[in-house]
Nucleic acid binder design. Sequence first.
DNA 1: AATGAATGAGAGTTCATTCAT
DNA 2: AATGAATGAACTCTCATTCAT
Lengths: 206, 206, 206, 206
Amino acid sequence: MTRANARKPGAAPGADDQGSVPRRLLSHATKLFAKKGFDRTSVQEIVEAAGVTKGAMYHYFGSKDDLLYEIYARVLREQTEQLEKVAVIDAPLRERLTAAASDVVVSTIASLDDNKIFAQSMHQLSAEKQKAVRAERRKYHERFRTLIEEGQASGDFRADKPADLVVDFFFGSVHHLGSWYHRGGSLTARQVGDHYADLLLDSLRP
Amino acid sequence: MTRANARKPGAAPGADDQGSVPRRLLSHATKLFAKKGFDRTSVQEIVEAAGVTKGAMYHYFGSKDDLLYEIYARVLREQTEQLEKVAVIDAPLRERLTAAASDVVVSTIASLDDNKIFAQSMHQLSAEKQKAVRAERRKYHERFRTLIEEGQASGDFRADKPADLVVDFFFGSVHHLGSWYHRGGSLTARQVGDHYADLLLDSLRP
Amino acid sequence: MTRANARKPGAAPGADDQGSVPRRLLSHATKLFAKKGFDRTSVQEIVEAAGVTKGAMYHYFGSKDDLLYEIYARVLREQTEQLEKVAVIDAPLRERLTAAASDVVVSTIASLDDNKIFAQSMHQLSAEKQKAVRAERRKYHERFRTLIEEGQASGDFRADKPADLVVDFFFGSVHHLGSWYHRGGSLTARQVGDHYADLLLDSLRP
Amino acid sequence: MTRANARKPGAAPGADDQGSVPRRLLSHATKLFAKKGFDRTSVQEIVEAAGVTKGAMYHYFGSKDDLLYEIYARVLREQTEQLEKVAVIDAPLRERLTAAASDVVVSTIASLDDNKIFAQSMHQLSAEKQKAVRAERRKYHERFRTLIEEGQASGDFRADKPADLVVDFFFGSVHHLGSWYHRGGSLTARQVGDHYADLLLDSLRP
DNA sequence: AATGAATGAGAGTTCATTCAT
DNA sequence: AATGAATGAACTCTCATTCAT
């Protein structure tokens, strides 16, 4: 899942030894946080899984919180970038929203661990960092809301539902994916994405 | 240490002095879990808030987990009962689903604390208890799904979306209420419920 | 719930309901102390096993220590009485010592639980009670030593070994029975007693 | 390696300031366990006596149990080695058994604390560790039994007593030393050892 | 004679973090 | 860049005992 890989050619591509130390730490922390929750995962477990020592971890990250924050920052950055790309393609509005909705489902499922952590552990971050994360997230939601508002103004979408309520409605569904979707189930990520996009679009028919 | 409860007649029946010891414990635990998360709330804080000693808490509850479990059990029981009531009223299917959907939003908002806890802390329960909670929850979802399947069979609802995907879609939205809805905002619980029900019903139009 | 006592003849001699409350408590405490050690056995466990409540226990016994003390007092009393009986029978000295040695083995095996507790838990008694128990035990050892000294004076036994060392040597073996003897093994209690008596007597040959 | 010790030059190199942290912990734990019993000794007391913090203790030992286990393992190892040495010397069998018996007394007295703990606290070890200790102890007993069986086969010793009963008889006496022998009494360890060996050997005369 | 709610002290253990090297 | 010993505070939970009823 995490790319993590040997930036320098020539680095030993061993089994549990790939990637730089910070990258390895982030990747194992992500897995453990998703599996056991932030508070239930000890720094000791993380460094053991990553095959480094505590000292090394504290060399790269100021605290356990920092690890979590980095995970959030990365997933938010990636999803925002993805949304930006889709939102500006040259296509009718309904198609752009459909693509955005489906994409967010696919990318959420692609990094399901990160998203589980998001749902469960965000409130365990320090107040300050929580604020930063929320702000970033709001920007993301707002970009999505803009699409809806555009459609309501143009008559493509019904206007009798507040756009931000619709956004929260839809993202609730998306964030909930982590608690039911299993790889290897009967639906691919894209199929779920298309279903979700359909449901959203149809509920917005004028 | 803390004398605690209303020994004197006339003690203020205010915020933290009413009810039996176990009830007081549950109520304060609920508030604290919702605010800080299960792991971040210490037993010490709970008993201090409830005005009892640790010993008293362990007299009534076998563990901190038990407290959480009781909270879950109660909210699930209440919501299941509520759904049962609405599901069997004598009305057309679309109206019954609308009522059920709106009601679940209203009751979720009514006990927003319990539901926040549900979303954030369920995975911190012991495996065994988690299983019990999940089983109960599944029953609840299944009752809801039955309504949708009925409508798909009768032609009231579109049949090209798996009913359980629709259920997960909708309950995702519902469980997410805790992270954006604030009492005192511009919408009442019922208004949100009606909007959500509308969105659901419209997305199911054949 | 607990009917308890049936002290009067005619009371149902049920399975876990026989005997007076204090007797039941002592009997269950003995079993539990032997199995898990004094400190590892909680008052709660004892009263549950005996089918009474804590209050009832504290009605009859001043403390958990008291329970242990009563067990000791009983076993010491019984063994001392038994030794007194054998020591004064009308028989040659060698026979009297043989009988006493064999008997102490048999009676130790007969109440193996009590003797295990003796070995493991005596030092957990309060200083005062420990003193009382030790004094009683010393009296017991002294009675035994007197027999040996008699024989050393009369020339029946070798005189080059201090009599109290011999007593400690022998009682060490006896107290150790609890850690190897199992009912249902290949030797009866009496057989072990006779072997032990033989070994003792032969080691004392002049 | 360990910070802890003798920070000031001139600190008394007396009782509690010498050796590495784990060694100091073991040594103080031994004294305390012998004096008060395992369960009655708190981790707090041990670390205070050793002049370290709890954290340091848990850095070296996984649990309080571990401390006890290390004490057992050490004493067993030492005694087994000692017995091995004596059992193979080039001397008649009776002399070898005499030497072994006397030596085991001397070495038991030399580490009387460890042996008291053995007698009183072994059953407080986890089931798994208890098994390991018992297995090691059995090996030790078996080595001793072999000597006796050799003598029974060669006619040096009487054959009408089961060899393992004799072993249990003798080791009972040895394990009991802790409850009566006091340094500074009238007998040296070697004198007690020789007396015990005599008694054993004479009881085995054919 | 007996209950059971409540106490309060202390148990063993975990943990994020620091710091000399 | 990295180690790992050590800290110190906090954690959940247990327990013998008391006392109003």
